[in-house]
Design a protein around this nucleic acid. Structure first.
Lengths: 253, 253
DNA sequence: CGACATTTTGAACCTGTTCAAAAACAGTGG
DNA sequence: CCACTGTTTTTGAACAGGTTCAAAATGTCG
């Protein structure tokens, strides 16, 4: 009889808020963990994850100023991270999808520096930071991998700064679509179609535009035959022309 | 007789491009290294730095796509980092001053993801990444410190995204001035006056504005008695009113 | 089905940009 | 040390892209 504290298959989508799981068995391994480890090393990774946690659409994984304890690997779902301002404005700093990591913002000060909110029902693996830290010391490959993750996040943000600081509305939207498309494609989804899990307003916040501008830009792109839009469903009709709009776009993660 | 390969005082500002130095003796220790280490631990840090390097104004510390080998602790001077676009535009992603670290962008891919250029004659300590990695494994406090540094960089960039995505020109400029003021003040400089080591154009690039807008905004702020501007020298005349402009500004590093 | 949220589209407006020219400054070499 | 050249900064005026405000249309969820 399997020890329920060791391995547990996620058959039911909800209700198992406290299931321990084995990273070595996870089908997202190659996304959030280093590859090329020995059997023994690989099994070390299983000590990483404390618990699973499921979230409903709209629920926060953590909030600004929450004490930082863990990173979260997204097993399923989409999140947004956002920073707020005292006078109510807020800025979406990123969208995170299945296989990506959230929570790096908290390491610096011991408290989270942003909110992370589920845009759809979601499931995450909780990785206690002290544990990661310890195992990384024993497993150089993991340490490297972790440093690379953080560095890539810094570089991704450089890309967003480039976008926010120097691109026009249509370029921003094109860059956003292409980036999301590429990330979803990597994860086995279509390379020509994406489903936007976020509202026009959230896209606008991320891109430094008003929701009306996002909507208008999408409409215009559709008129010009670049894409076709059906609510949250966007199909890329002319990948090359879309790419050409973003020659400014070596950018983004 | 002191071993010249171990300790070397920086008496002459230039000409000693290859001097080894002891971190434990460095007057920037508390800025770039963790505090509260034992004598023995502290001396471990001396293995970190490979060489010093001096740069002339305008010289690049590294460039986009340069192979990544090292991080650099700035001992003296100011740098800008920038990412470029194929069509010539570029975006300044940050300004780094004495005591700060540059180069984290390279860890992710093994190549630098931006240019780092000296805005004035400068001096840096080269910290080979493999060496840092190794010592960090033996010295948990150092590892923590390093992770915190990276995380803070991520959070800083969140702040810049907030600035670029949701603030108006005068708010951006105010946030920029206050941030720089605070960082220089931390390093022992005046809390009321800063010398801008960068051009209006570079400030504009960082803030997502044109140089004319930066200039006009500074002029207007001066008219209103918030600051007084004398070329690159800016004196803050009404810190409280300047702060009030940026209530949007929990932001920036 | 009904209440509420999201999206689309229009028209006036405003902030920041663009283009241009003059002024101030910095570095170079005589 | 000063004159000269190129760069940086300031300021003006016209312009444009994106915002704002508003209303209708479409979707979504209980």
């Amino acid at each position: 009889m399997p020890n329920p504290a060791t391995i547990r298959v996620a058959s039911e989508p909800f209700g198992l808020a406290q299931a321990r799981v084995a990273c070595s068995q996870c089908n997202l391994r190659e996304l959030c963990m280093p590859v090329g480890l020995s059997e023994a090393e690989s099994s070390q990774l299983d000590r990483l994850v404390a618990t699973r946690r499921t979230l409903r659409k709209g629920e926060a994984l953590f909030r600004l100023n929450d004490p930082f304890t863990s990173l979260y690997a997204i097993r399923l779902g989409t999140f947004k991270t956002r920073v707020g301002t005292s006078d109510g404005r807020d800025q979406v700093t990123g969208f995170q999808v299945t296989g990506e990591l959230v929570g790096l913002d908290g390491i610096g000060s011991g408290r989270h520096a942003c909110d992370a909110v589920a845009l759809e029902d979601a499931e995450v693996c909780e990785i206690p930071y002290v544990r990661l830290d310890k195992i990384a010391r024993e497993l150089p490959a993991l340490q490297r991998h972790f440093h690379q993750l953080m560095s890539r996040e810094i570089v991704r943000e450089h890309g967003v700064m480039l976008l926010l600081g120097s691109m026009r509305a249509d370029e921003r939207v094109a860059a956003f679509l292409l980036n999301l498309l590429q990330r979803m494609h990597t994860r086995g989804y279509s390379g020509r179609e994406i489903v936007l899990r976020m509202t026009r307003e959230e896209i606008g916040s991320y891109l430094g535009l008003k929701l009306e501008t996002v909507s208008r830009t999408l409409s215009r792109m559709a008129d010009e035959g670049l894409i076709s839009v059906n609510q949250r469903r966007v199909r890329i009709e002319a990948l090359d022309r879309l790419r050409a709009m973003v020659q400014a776009g070596d950018a983004q993660s």
